[in-house]
Design a protein around this nucleic acid. Structure first.
Length: 340
DNA sequence: TGGATTTGACCGCT
DNA sequence: AGCGGTCAAATCCA
């Protein structure tokens, strides 16, 4: 959060009140930029707080809960800002999986060669978890940007003539990194892949699939051997699992404390990377989280809500927070010190 | 060998 | 001329 945002937010002006949906594009983008920054910094603060408070019971749970709420607030504001921008909306035509859970529609559509082409721009930490399979057909270094832009087409571009495309470009160098994703055209194919599928992982193992290499954009100028990518991915999956365990432990500790009930179920997998970021999403639907990893709570009937109070998890949480274990919680550094 | 990504070259627009 | 978007040959892996 920048302490001195000098945004010309029209308080009460324009009839909308506050940050008007009809604000000029640059103003709108400025607001989104500041909110995004705040969101990112909150995530970093969480990471740091969780690192410092690890194992400190109530203090850790309290910090996780409060910071999670702060993070949630940013997310909701971003969704309002982006979602209210008519230009950022793609026409709702063919049924398709939603963009990633953490996706945030932002700003005006970029200029393109075809201005009548529907575009939807989002900021997301998980640019590839949108339920579709993509084939990369190009990558280019864009002027005045730090990261190259990857060009993807629906993998059914050829066999089903699906026109859907997207461009993925890392947005910043923060932790976790945000990716700007521009979707163009609607899918005309009906892909069997579920939205929960992680195409960058599931497909890469068989040599196919989408854009995992864009998690390592800085390596694009020099080709990485795929075996190395596979190694990185395996390590990432391992980290995600560990983060899932530890994040869930934080959540359960927090719920237990606030619910004033239940025995100590701390999973106790104190794993370094990304614990705080996981806790950032403490209000995520707990049933979903545990269901995703039932082995974490042996003997606990999650489906019946045992041991968990999910009544105060609202729809917003379900909509805007990523499940634990997805890439927002899984970041780290490579040997060369770069982020992934 | 098939299917994927990478990356330099090419093309069209401003 | 410079830029972004796309093509396609080269390359890699299962």
């Amino acid at each position: 959060m920048q302490g001195q945002s000098r945004l010309a937010v029209s308080g009460g002006g324009g009839g909308d009140g506050g940050v008007s949906f009809g604000a000029p594009a640059d103003e709108h983008e400025a607001v989104v930029r500041e909110l995004t920054r705040g969101h990112e910094l909150t995530a970093r603060l969480q990471a740091e707080a969780m690192r410092v408070l690890r194992g400190q019971g109530q203090a850790e749970a309290t910090a996780a809960f409060i910071l999670g709420e702060v993070s949630r607030t940013f997310t909701v504001c971003l969704s309002i800002m982006g979602g209210a921008s008519p230009s950022s909306r793609a026409p709702a035509t063919s049924p398709r999986p939603e963009t990633p859970d953490s996706a945030i529609s932002v700003g005006a559509p970029p200029r393109g060669k075809e201005d009548n082409v529907p575009r939807k721009k989002t900021l997301t930490t998980s640019p590839f978890q949108d339920g579709y399979k993509w084939k990369k057909y190009g990558q280019k270094k864009i002027n005045n940007t730090n990261f190259p832009r990857g060009y993807y087409r629906c993998s059914h571009h050829r066999d089903r003539n699906c026109p859907a495309q997207k461009q993925v470009q890392q947005h910043n160098d923060d932790v976790p990194p945000l990716f700007a994703v521009v979707y163009t055209h609607e899918h005309t194919c009906e892909q069997p892949s579920a939205a929960s599928e992680l195409p960058d992982k599931t497909n890469s193992a068989s040599g196919g699939g989408s854009a995992a290499p864009d998690y390592f954009p800085e390596t694009s100028t020099r080709r990485r051997r795929k075996s190395t990518l596979a190694d990185d991915r395996a390590a990432m999956e391992e980290r995600e699992h560990q983060v899932l365990v530890s994040s869930l432990a934080s959540v359960l500790q927090g719920r237990q404390w606030y619910d004033d009930g239940g025995d100590s179920r701390g999973v106790g997998a104190g794993v370094g990377v990304g614990v705080g970021a996981g806790a950032a999403h403490a209000p995520a639907p707990a049933s979903q989280l545990v269901a995703a990893s039932p082995e974490l709570q042996p003997g606990l009937d999650v489906s019946a809500g045992e041991g968990l109070d999910v009544t105060d998890y609202d729809v917003t949480d379900a909509l805007f927070f990523e499940p634990f274990g997805t890439d927002i919680n899984s970041f780290g550094t490579r040997d060369d010190g770069t982020l992934f």
